[in-house]
Simulated assay, not measured.
Amino acid sequence: MSRFKLSLAAFVIFALACGTPPPPPVTLTAPAEIEIGSAFEVTWAGPDSSDDYITIVPSGAPEGEWTDYEYTSTGNPISLTAPFKPGSYEIRYATERTEPDSTIGRITLTVKDVESGITAPAEAVSGAPFEVSWTGPEGSGGVYVVMVPQGTPEGEWAGYEWHYTSMGNPLTFTAPGEPGTWEVRLSTGSFDFPADSTLARCSISIVGSEVTLDAPETAAAGSSIAIGWTGPGLDGHYITIVPSGASEGDWNEYAYTSEGNPVMLTAPAEPGEYEIRYAAEGSDTDVTLARRPITIE
Results as ranks from 00 to 15, higher is better:
4 F>N: 14
7 S>D: 06
9 A>W: 07
11 F>N: 12
11 F>D: 13
12 V>C: 06
13 I>S: 03
13 I>N: 02
15 A>Q: 14
17 A>M: 12
18 C>K: 12
18 C>M: 08
18 C>P: 08
23 P>D: 06
23 P>M: 08
25 P>L: 15
25 P>A: 13
26 V>Y: 07
33 E>C: 06
34 I>T: 00
35 E>G: 13
39 A>F: 13
39 A>M: 14
41 E>A: 11
42 V>S: 13
42 V>N: 02
44 W>F: 09
46 G>D: 06
49 S>P: 15
63 E>M: 10
71 Y>T: 11
72 T>Q: 05
76 N>D: 05
78 I>H: 15
85 K>E: 00
86 P>Q: 04
88 S>Q: 05
89 Y>E: 01
100 P>L: 13
106 R>D: 00
119 T>F: 15
122 A>S: 04
126 S>C: 01
127 G>T: 01
134 W>C: 01
138 E>W: 11
144 Y>L: 06
146 V>L: 08
149 P>I: 13
150 Q>C: 08
150 Q>P: 11
152 T>W: 07
154 E>C: 08
157 W>A: 08
157 W>E: 04
162 W>K: 14
166 S>K: 05
166 S>N: 10
169 N>Y: 14
174 T>S: 10
175 A>E: 11
182 W>C: 00
193 F>P: 05
195 A>S: 15
198 T>E: 05
199 L>K: 08
201 R>H: 14
202 C>D: 15
204 I>F: 06
211 V>G: 07
211 V>Q: 11
218 T>C: 09
220 A>H: 15
220 A>W: 15
224 S>H: 12
228 G>F: 10
228 G>I: 09
232 P>T: 12
242 V>I: 00
243 P>A: 04
248 E>P: 04
255 A>E: 15
256 Y>F: 13
258 S>I: 07
259 E>S: 06
262 P>Y: 12
269 A>G: 03
275 E>C: 09
280 A>C: 12
281 E>M: 15
293 P>L: 06
297 E>C: 07
